[in-house]
């Protein structure tokens, strides 16, 4: 039993030069936590809600993920929803290829991976997971812990 039977084989994908605006639209429309970014059929990374939310924060805050330590909480900022919208406008035109989740071009999941492996990875990454053909590196489909749960309910 492998995840091949629950694979969503023709998922909605992004290209690296698609805009962040397009990605945001698709994330909302498809109601998924992450979209695979594909170039010539091959997975080049993942852009998801997490990356989008990161772009909506002040630039200094975004550096926190990279080792800066000085900000412990942001309550002191007088930000309004309008400020968040302005930052959104600011990044909307940029390409998703610049903002991929780090290391997300590598995934251990291929169609022969087990359910437990998919659950384990979903537990760690908290998003939808790309599944890649081992030999070619081509995107085979997407899978999420939801798909495993639904499969259990059906059996």
């Amino acid at each position: 039993m492998s995840i091949s039977e629950i694979l969503r084989r023709e998922p909605v994908t992004l290209a690296p030069h698609d805009t962040v605006a397009r990605a945001a639209e698709l994330l909302v429309e498809e109601h998924v936590l992450a979209l695979p970014v594909v170039e010539e059929g091959k997975l080049v990374g993942v852009f998801g809600l997490h990356e989008l939310v990161e772009l909506l924060m002040p630039r200094a805050v975004r550096l926190m993920n990279q080792g800066l330590e000085g900000l412990t909480d942001l309550d002191f900022l007088a930000d309004t929803l309008e400020d968040v919208r302005q930052r959104m406008d600011h990044v909307c035109g940029t390409e998703v290829g610049e903002h991929l989740e780090r290391g997300s071009e590598r995934t251990p999941l291929d169609p022969a991976s087990s359910f437990t492996e998919a659950l384990f990875l979903g537990y760690r990454l908290r998003r939808d997971l790309p599944v890649v053909e081992k030999e070619t590196g081509r995107l085979a489909g997407m899978v999420s812990p939801w798909d495993v749960l639904e499969r259990i309910r059906r059996s």
């Binding site: 200094a60 550096l63 080792g67 800066l68 330590e69 000085g70 900022l77």
Partner: peptide
């Protein structure tokens, strides 16, 4: 490391 993030926030 403590001062730079606040500096960047303020200059932003």
């Amino acid at each position: 490391l403590l001062i730079v993030p606040v500096t960047l926030l303020i200059t932003e």
